[in-house]
Simulated assay, not measured.
Amino acid sequence: MSAPFTLEGRTALITSGTRGAGAATVKLFRELGAHVLTSARTRPAELPEEMIVTADLSTEEGCETLAAAARQRLGTIDIIVHMLGGSSAPAGGFAALTDDEWRRELDLNLFPAVRLDRALLPKMLREGRGVVIHVSSIQRLLPLPQSTTAYAAAKAALSTYSKSLSKEVSSRGVRVVRVSPGWIETESSLKLAHRLAQEAGTDLEGGKKIIMEALGGIPVGRPSKPEEVANLIAFLASDLAATITGAEYIIDGGTVPTV
């Protein structure tokens, strides 16, 4: 059965598109007909060189490199998907978070979107069309005090910035939307589940259960798959979502317990 929508002929910049939900999003966009450019710190062998820009987006220089490459290779940019995010902060609560740790979390989870939008949105606005999707996290609503305080705060800042940007540019033809995943079953998250399982003397499913319990439970009983997150992002980038802007879409299996 054919897809209910297409991205045929669209150009898309998708940051951090070589692993997990980012890789799934790149793959789906290409299947739907989009011309995609992505980024990573190192280029994986399976992606053609013309599809990827190697850059460290946690730096101003890296964002400038990617923005320049996007303008050169894509010309008009129809869609920007800010997939980049993550955390390297230590456990231990607020006292373990030095100024350097806070800067690292903001440099990875907030500033790449701010810098790339500032560089690329002016052309979208001149052309009167485009879609910007900021990938946040349910951690902005459910921070884990022992391990994700700085990450959650950075994602909360990204969400607030995204909402404000939508109010500024939507009347000029550019939609801005947020996608906030919960736990996604990626290679790295499965490694964590394996480690927790070994420490607890259980199997992989037991390790997954430990993670789900730490999150307060996932009513559907499992994490989201990268492809499911990609499906939501592609829909929001398509013409079927033409009047959706300024909104946040949570994809977490019901983890967030509030309205």
Rank of each mutant, 00 (worst) to 15 (best):
A247M: 06
I184G: 06
A193V: 11
G20S: 05
A230Y: 06
L158Y: 01
V114E: 00
R129T: 13
C63V: 00
A55S: 03
A89K: 07
E187W: 01
V131Q: 02
R104S: 14
L196G: 10
D117K: 00
P223C: 13
M212Q: 14
A193W: 10
L141D: 05
K123R: 14
I250G: 01
V36Q: 04
G9F: 05
K225L: 15
F29T: 00
S189I: 06
G216D: 03
S159R: 07
A156C: 05
G85Y: 04
S88D: 13
P145E: 07
A91D: 12
R104K: 15
S39P: 01
T202V: 14
R118A: 14
F111Q: 04
K163R: 14
G17Y: 00
S162D: 02
I80V: 15
R126M: 12
T15D: 03
A214H: 08
I79G: 09
D239C: 05
M51C: 09
A154D: 00
S238Q: 10
S2H: 13
P48R: 07
G86Q: 08
P145C: 11
V26G: 05
T148R: 11
L66W: 01
H35G: 04
H134A: 13
D78H: 15
L47N: 00
P219D: 11
E228I: 09
T25H: 05
A157P: 08
G173I: 10
T202I: 13
F94H: 12
L57A: 05
H134N: 15
L84T: 10
Q146M: 10
L125Y: 09
S180I: 01
Q146N: 15
A237K: 06
R129C: 12
T255S: 14
T76F: 05
R41S: 02
K163L: 11
R104V: 07
P257V: 07
E8M: 08
R103H: 12
T76H: 11
A119L: 14
M83D: 00
G207C: 13
E187C: 06
G221C: 11
G130E: 04
P4S: 14
